[in-house]
Structures are given as structure tokens and as C-alpha cells.
């Protein structure tokens, strides 16, 4: 069957795929690699951006723990401060902070894509939406520092 088919096409073929049946299309489907996000820089950046959710979750949970420690009294809080000051924890929290900052930057940079603001017939330009977000970040940071350190 294969021979007839190939002869009918009139070609000289060296390799023959024995599983091929004439007039039965046989698509080739490539498996997508499991670690597809290592294949391209943009994909790698994407997966790092998605992994910032772990830093956000960790921060929320440790803030809750800090509240619990505070409600237990001064002695427990002092022990918690000792934990925060130990070198491995400091390094780890440095990494967490880096991820949080990456989250903030990527979040604000992508926000203009989703937010299309219109004032009447005027469409607020993306650059203004973007700088508005960064201004809000600055204000929020100042607010937190003022609240805690005043």
C-alpha cells in the first residue's frame, strides 16, 4: 500500500514510515516541555512574577503571627524580635522584600493595560495611569512609615 502510494506520487523515497497510510493524514504533535518557563527569558520573568504570590502569602501569615505574638505580651514579642534579628531570617526577609518589590513594580507596570479610564471623551493616557500608581505607592509608603514611626 505504502509502496503503491509512493510510486503513484512518483517520488524516490529513501526512508519510509511504515505506519503511514496513504490519504490518512498523520499530524505531528510536539509535547510542550514541563519547564517551558526556562525556554524564554520573558517566560522566566513571568514565572518569577507569579511566584511573588508566595512572598505576599508569607508576609500576610507572618503579620498574623506578629499580631498573635503581640497579644501574648512583651516577653513573647522580645523573643520574636530575636527571631527577626537572626542572620538567616534577615537574609530570608531580604529575599521576601525583593519579591514584594518585584510584585509592586510588575503590578503597577501592567495596570494601564487593564485600566482604561475615560473622562468624557478624553482617554486618560497610559503614562498618567502609570505615574498615578507610582504616586499612590509613594503616598502609601509614607503613610505606613508615618503611622508606625511617628
Amino acid at each position: 500500500m505504502v509502496q503503491v502510494g509512493v510510486a503513484a506520487v512518483g517520488q524516490t523515497v529513501n526512508r519510509i514510515n511504515p505506519k503511514y497510510q496513504l490519504y490518512h493524514p498523520k499530524w505531528y504533535r510536539k509535547d510542550y516541555p514541563i519547564f517551558w518557563w526556562l525556554e524564554k527569558f520573558a517566560y522566566g520573568k513571568f514565572i518569577v512574577r507569579e511566584m511573588t504570590s508566595l512572598a505576599v502569602g508569607y508576609t500576610a501569615v507572618l503579620l498574623m503571627f506578629q499580631l498573635w505574638v503581640l497579644s501574648r505580651g512583651q516577653e513573647t514579642y522580645q523573643r520574636f524580635l530575636g527571631f527577626l534579628e537572626s542572620t538567616p531570617v534577615m537574609i530570608f526577609h531580604g529575599v521576601v522584600l525583593a519579591f514584594l518589590l518585584f510584585h509592586s513594580v510588575t503590578w503597577f507596570n501592567l495596570a494601564p493595560k487593564a485600566l482604561v479610564l475615560r473622562l468624557g471623551r478624553w482617554r486618560v493616557p497610559n503614562a498618567l495611569v502609570l505615574s498615578g500608581h507610582y504616586a499612590a505607592w509613594l503616598a502609601a509608603t509614607a503613610l505606613v512609615i508615618w503611622l508606625v514611626a511617628r
Binding site: 505576599v56 508576609t59 509592586s104 505606613v144 508606625v148
Partner: peptide, 25 residues
């Protein structure tokens, strides 16, 4: 995502890297 982006870096800085004393907090 919005609240975390706005507030979490600052909170981590002031509560973990320069934590206030017990009575203050």
C-alpha cells in the same frame, strides 16, 4: 494585588527590619 503592591514593602521594612518597641506597637 493592589493593596499588597502599595503597602507590603513598607510594612515589611518598618515591622521586620526596624521593628518598634512592644508598647509603641
Amino acid at each position: 494585588g493592589m493593596l499588597a503592591a502599595l503597602f507590603l514593602p513598607a510594612l515589611v521594612l518598618v515591622l521586620w527590619f526596624a521593628p518598634p518597641s512592644y508598647p509603641e506597637l
